[in-house]
Amino acid sequence: MPLNWKTGGVLLGLVFFLAVLLVKPIGVSTQFVILDGMIADAVNSEFITETEEGYTSTNAYMAKSGGKYAGNAMNPLNYSFVFVLAMMLGAFLSAMARGGIGAAERQSPALWRANFGDGPVKRYAVAFLGGFVVLYGARLAGGCTSGHMMSGMMQTSLSGYIFAAGAFASAVPVAMMMYRKEG
């Protein structure tokens, strides 16, 4: 069982507060673009190039805002990218400290198995397609659950509310249709 919502909610709120107190609001999904940029530039070194003012890219999205994303992809030791790596470390240590995740659950979640059976292939396919749609949507929206919904609504930003309305408007019907059994 996860932490009680009162404890968990206060802890999660404290992390979001500490981030904005010490540095800036939390966000994650941009780093998928940064990693894509690193991969693309490793395959083709012409993808990102240095200019007099910084960096630019043959891709219009990487090059926008004065090549900010292109620059971050060329300098991976920046705050936001290291932040995501550290998130993985924190989640790993926390999961290990509570005894790790069982073998069946590691392959596919109990809720999935209750509704769609034990075979992992379908689960992997849906996770892959889900990832595609989630990140395409997050980049179109300019942020994800962390940056738009949590950090955004916490700052009373209009975009955070618009994003949350869109996300729940589709998430609830999709989840209700897919996960009829509770698992």
């Binding site: 998130m87 989640a91 790993f92 290990m96 989630v134 997050a138 929206a141 869109g166 589709s170 897919m178």
Partner: peptide, 28 residues
């Protein structure tokens, strides 16, 4: 922002992951 939210919501519901929780789940 709204259209992207709709897409993210559908993928989030289907997969059970959003960008931040997905990388954390993989690490765990």
């Amino acid at each position: 922002v709204f259209i992207g939210g709709l897409l993210l919501g559908a993928g989030w519901a289907a997969s059970g992951y959003c960008p931040g929780t997905g990388v954390c789940a993989a690490a765990s």
